[in-house]
Design a protein around this nucleic acid. Sequence first.
DNA 1: GCTTACAGTAAGTTATGACTTACGGAACAG
DNA 2: CTGTTCCGTAAGTCATAACTTACTGTAAGC
Lengths: 110, 110
Amino acid sequence: MAALGDPTRRRVFERLKSGPQAVGALAVGLPVSRPAVSQHLKVLKQAGLVSDRPEGTRRVYYIDPRGLGALHAWLDQFWGQALVAFQAEAEAEAKTDAGTDTDSGEEETS
Amino acid sequence: MAALGDPTRRRVFERLKSGPQAVGALAVGLPVSRPAVSQHLKVLKQAGLVSDRPEGTRRVYYIDPRGLGALHAWLDQFWGQALVAFQAEAEAEAKTDAGTDTDSGEEETS
DNA sequence: GCTTACAGTAAGTTATGACTTACGGAACAG
DNA sequence: CTGTTCCGTAAGTCATAACTTACTGTAAGC
């Protein structure tokens, strides 16, 4: 999560969407130097979002599905509450000034 | 995405998981001041991750499912390539010492 | 009408981290 | 064995943004 907070790092990660890439290939087209890309890849790797494989003198990076799964799981935590709160808000908004509501008498218990 | 990069902002967001909360209630238990929480909520709101509803002099914030859906969709972009790359890596690792490859003519075009 | 509580904004400070240049090490080519 | 290419790391600079204090506005309570 924190790893994908930086825009440049997100761009590096999105570049990996088009297949495994070496560091030099990733740096081409980005507005930062190659060492900067290396540092970003290090952060992404520590976050479990990418993995790397040595290929000769090159180093090929690719997206790690496990980190993706962790993010997915973390995100899914919020779905239940989000839907409940959103629906509650819709109802509350419907009766913000509506005095004609007769059936459900509902007060706040602080 | 960028909104959830900050750890404190993430804690505010996670606090909203237990139901809609006012700003003051959210600030209690967090290691930052109440105005700081207000600023974080502003960022989260601009990102579409939370919405707010005025309740008297209080202001109740709750998680917005739409922002959550956008994040979900963005994350799902990577699944396909992630699985393909991971599987390819597994196969490549299985033949790390197998030097009898068919020598596919693959050069970087710099 | 006056006071109190709650929240957003402004201005200013400070710390975090993103970036660059320079260097060192490892693997193929000749 | 020498040279080249590719990558990671170190040290240093600088900008971004997170945080605090102080103030203003608004809604409720007496």
